[in-house]
Amino acid sequence: MTTRAFDPGQCPVGRTLERVGDTWSLMILRDAQQGLTRFDAFEKSLGVAPNILAKRLAGLVQSGFLERRPYQDRPVRHEYVLTPQGRDFAPVLTALLAFGNRHFAHEGIAGQLVDRVTGQAAEPVVVDAVSGRPIDAERFTYAAGPAAGETVRQRVAEIEARRGRD
């Protein structure tokens, strides 16, 4: 049996998952969003083996989510700081948190976002920055962008054809 490597083509979801699509990378980004920067802090928080942590940190640096900076000279030690791209990933983690709380928190909410001033729990939603409307399937749909190749255009045509049959 042969294994075919995943090719995301022009799919933005596939391209993102290639870079952060494993549990450890997502959890490292969660911890980094919460202020962790040092190898030992990530290791303690996650309970991950050092070799796996080192590999995932290197991948997140290579993919542009984290920057590796020295914080000590003797011996040389590095910290991992979110880049602008890494900080831009925060809403994705927020969406995962909200989804997990809605669908998988069978014992109740263990972690949530709250308003710093009022302490009131937030109810995260994804909204269109132009109109301010919540993104939902009723109003919004996937469409080809200006740089779309034939595969993307075909996918959009198939989506439209399915919608026409419904």
Rank of each mutant, 00 (worst) to 15 (best):
157 A>D: 09
80 Y>M: 04
40 D>N: 12
63 S>F: 15
47 G>Q: 03
67 E>D: 09
163 R>A: 15
58 A>L: 04
160 E>H: 13
57 L>D: 01
141 T>P: 00
128 D>E: 06
19 R>S: 13
119 G>I: 13
139 R>M: 09
59 G>E: 08
101 N>K: 06
100 G>H: 15
40 D>M: 12
47 G>Y: 04
150 E>W: 11
119 G>N: 10
110 A>Y: 04
153 R>K: 15
13 V>S: 06
67 E>G: 05
97 L>P: 00
163 R>P: 01
104 F>G: 00
158 E>L: 13
28 I>K: 09
157 A>I: 12
121 A>R: 02
118 T>V: 06
106 H>T: 03
16 T>C: 09
116 R>M: 02
60 L>E: 03
52 I>P: 00
30 R>K: 15
129 A>E: 09
70 P>L: 12
120 Q>A: 15
46 L>C: 01
30 R>D: 01
163 R>V: 10
136 D>K: 08
5 A>C: 00
119 G>V: 11
46 L>V: 00
92 V>W: 12
31 D>I: 01
93 L>P: 07
69 R>M: 14
86 G>M: 07
66 L>C: 10
109 I>W: 03
45 S>D: 07
84 P>F: 03
142 Y>K: 13
19 R>I: 07
87 R>P: 02
92 V>K: 00
45 S>W: 11
78 H>W: 13
151 T>Q: 10
157 A>T: 11
58 A>C: 04
124 P>S: 04
4 R>F: 02
96 L>V: 02
112 Q>W: 11
124 P>A: 03
123 E>Q: 08
2 T>F: 05
11 C>D: 14
130 V>E: 09
129 A>Y: 04
146 P>M: 08
27 M>L: 15
163 R>Y: 15
158 E>Y: 10
105 A>Q: 02
123 E>M: 12
94 T>N: 05
91 P>S: 08
126 V>M: 10
8 P>T: 04
76 V>Q: 13
99 F>D: 04
50 P>N: 08
86 G>D: 01
11 C>G: 11
54 A>L: 12
159 I>F: 15
18 E>D: 13
104 F>Q: 00
151 T>K: 10
37 T>H: 09
115 D>I: 11
133 R>N: 02
89 F>R: 05
128 D>M: 07
117 V>H: 05
93 L>W: 03
120 Q>M: 09
111 G>H: 14
125 V>E: 06
136 D>S: 12
79 E>K: 14
37 T>I: 06
136 D>V: 11
154 Q>D: 15
40 D>Q: 10
44 K>E: 10
7 D>Q: 08
35 G>M: 00
105 A>R: 04
151 T>G: 06
38 R>H: 13
27 M>W: 14
110 A>I: 05
57 L>P: 01
35 G>P: 03
18 E>C: 03
145 G>T: 06
93 L>N: 06
7 D>P: 00
22 D>S: 14
78 H>R: 05
150 E>K: 12
75 P>A: 11
21 G>I: 10
85 Q>I: 10
18 E>W: 09
11 C>K: 05
